[in-house]
Amino acid sequence: MSIPLLSVKHLTTDIHLEQGKVRAVRDVSFDLWQGKTIGIVGESGCGKSILCKSILKLLPAYAHILEKSQIIFNGRSINNLTEKELNKIRGQGAAMIFQDPLSSLNPVMKIGHQVTETLLYHLKMEEEPALKKAEDLLKAVGIANPSQRIDQYPHQLSGGLRQRVAIAIALACEPKLLIADEPTTALDVTVQAEILDLLDHLQIQRNMAMILVTHDFGLAACRADEIAVMYGGKIVEYAPAEKLLANPRMPYTKALINAIPRLEDPPHTPLQFIEGQPPNMMIPYAGCCFAPRCSLAGHQCRDQEPLLINDDTDDHSFACWNPLGKIS
């Protein structure tokens, strides 16, 4: 294979708050090839969203991406791009869908205008053909009566429809990369399944790469080629989806999977949970950030930070001094 579409190297993002500095993303590296989906899984506060926003440089002013971080998109480093050059990449090269479509859509702007906005800005289309294209886009994302919808406002649409509009906007300029930050968390399972089928379909059609951020391990298992598990701002395990699920090496990954209630278990089966609290990101730590909650933690875990390494296979990496079961 040639070069990856997106290559993230040593991405580190600090957020400066009144109370002090939070290192929200710590030395994250991964590659994403065209047509593939990487699922980023983790609990709230693990840095998933900041990671996504760092990639597109959509961070607030009080956040700061460290110098050593490298983001190479389509063979080009976007580290030192001007805002104008970045805007060219956002939309046309890479687009993003956010968790809450109600707050990502403009409440006082008609749906039609919100979809055409990107077409007018990025593709320099004329108003009329843009509106026509907007209708086509809305139709492509499964909205039944696009000609009526373009004259409506977001509050007149259901949650599922709003998210479809957000997807239509993200896909308007046919991006090579789609970053979906919890795209279906606010939706019901039946609508979630439909939206994700739609994304699958569009992805195959356009050979688009996708970063699917979710707190739902099941969702990542069903929809991603590779899964990266994040904890305390770091990727703690990274592998092809089926490998990661069949044989999690990092105790945190396993604990997270075990905490999910299983449909096949009989009623009243006690659930396993992770003791303790997620790490306070304001306080620097020496060892593994999961060590305080890990039953397998030893001295080394508390004193020395484990790096993300491969064990016996090239495509399964994990950051752990006492990894779970090797395959013999």
């Binding site: 399972v189 039946t190 979630q192 099941g218 298992a221």
Partner: peptide, 18 residues
């Protein structure tokens, strides 16, 4: 059945009877 089939499940990633 629609509700059950729409649940993404960790241990049955392929189980998505459309």
């Amino acid at each position: 059945s629609a509700l059950f089939s729409a649940i993404p499940r960790v241990n049955h990633p392929q189980a998505f009877p459309k």
